[in-house]
Design a protein around this nucleic acid. Sequence first.
DNA 1: TGAATGACTTCGG
DNA 2: CCCGAAGCCATTC
Length: 108
Amino acid sequence: MASEGFFEKVYQVAKKIPYGRVTSYGAIAKYLGAAGSARMVGWAMNGSSKDPDVPAHRVVNRKGLLTGKHHFKGTNLMQQLLESEGVEVVENQIQHFEELFWDPMKEL
DNA sequence: TGAATGACTTCGG
DNA sequence: CCCGAAGCCATTC
């Protein structure tokens, strides 16, 4: 259905996230023109399971916290993926988050 | 149509 | 910065 339009956009942006970088739901939402619908981005990510090319592990909340890790298959899968990209993660929180932060509005 | 939900964000204390 | 409460918005039932 066309109702997946919003989801598709989220997937596209998520796929554009550079390697070893992360972003927040709000940033993506704002880029999509749906500023304030950060929750929808997370919701869209819920459907990202059907699109393995979507690096949902690179999308965290504004604090750099891996809030969505509980939605992954493994409890530590999300962190492992980030660490695999050179991103330090401690206590579900991304280190140097401000440095690794990738703003689609600014980068795209 | 209306109420409930959610991987968030912002505001006030 | 931490905590609690309210707000937002699209999707689902």
